[in-house]
Simulated assay, not measured.
Amino acid sequence: MKHFWFLSLLFLSAPQVSAQSVEVCPSLPANSGLEWTYSEGPDFDVCRAYVRGSESLAFGIYLGNHPSFHPARSDHIGNGKVASRRVTWYRQGPNDSDSAFFRHTLLTLDGKTGYVAHIWVAADTEQQLRGRLSVLERIVFKAP
């Protein structure tokens, strides 16, 4: 009987843990049509924005201190904004994505601690890319 209550408690608390973890992710604009999924690493968080009701990845954001992306090793392809802050977008590497329109950037969120956001965007058309970049301009990061 003790095991039953313990398992029941775990099942009841699981949705709350999952919901709290997504709270790490930036706020999406209300009309974005996107929803977050969340993954936790040993010392970082990853938020992936999917088109609501599908498996289509719009963009992802790594939050931590040790991103695998290094702008110095990539080709600059343009400028833009993420969370109302200026960024430089870089071309995909050979193994980054099958997406026709893929780019990524690095945004420092806390210069004192080196806490950064590595943001990548995947799109199949220019119109889709413009829409996703528009959403990224309007996201709001939470305090690290």
Rank of each mutant, 00 (worst) to 15 (best):
G60Q: 07
T88W: 03
F4L: 15
G60A: 13
D75Y: 07
R132K: 13
A30N: 12
Y90K: 01
P29G: 10
G33F: 07
V135F: 11
I139C: 04
A72M: 08
S134C: 02
E137H: 09
G131R: 13
G60I: 00
L12V: 12
L106M: 12
S84D: 11
V82T: 06
R103Q: 15
V17F: 10
S68T: 06
V51I: 13
A58G: 07
L136K: 05
A123E: 04
S39Q: 13
V46W: 03
K142G: 14
L63R: 00
E126Q: 15
L129H: 07
L57M: 08
L7T: 11
R91P: 00
V140D: 08
D75E: 14
V17P: 00
I119P: 01
S84K: 15
F44E: 04
L106W: 01
F101E: 05
Y62T: 00
T125M: 08
G131K: 13
L28W: 06
N31V: 11
F6E: 02
C47F: 01
S99C: 13
S21C: 00
I61Q: 00
L7Y: 08
S97C: 08
E137S: 07
E35K: 11
A49M: 03
R85E: 12
L12A: 14
F69K: 00
H76N: 06
S134N: 15
V87C: 07
A14L: 15
A100W: 06
A30W: 02
V87E: 03
Y115K: 14
P15A: 01
A58L: 02
V17I: 11
S27R: 12
G33S: 08
S21I: 06
L106H: 03
A30P: 04
H104L: 01
G53K: 12
P42R: 09
G80V: 02
E126D: 14
S56N: 10
R91D: 10
R85F: 05
T125N: 10
D43M: 01
K2H: 08
V24M: 08
D110P: 10
Q128Y: 04
R138F: 03
R85A: 09
W120Y: 15
V121L: 12
G80Y: 02
L57I: 05
A14H: 04
P144M: 06
Q20P: 00
L133E: 15
R73N: 13
T125S: 15
T113F: 11
A19Y: 07
Q16D: 01
S8V: 13
W5Y: 14
L106Y: 02
W36K: 10
E137N: 09
S54W: 04
N95T: 13
F59E: 01
T88Q: 15
F59R: 01
T37E: 09
N31Q: 15
L63H: 00
V116T: 10
L136F: 08
P26F: 03
P94Q: 12
R86E: 11
R132Q: 14
F101G: 02
V24E: 05
C47L: 03
A83K: 07
W89H: 10
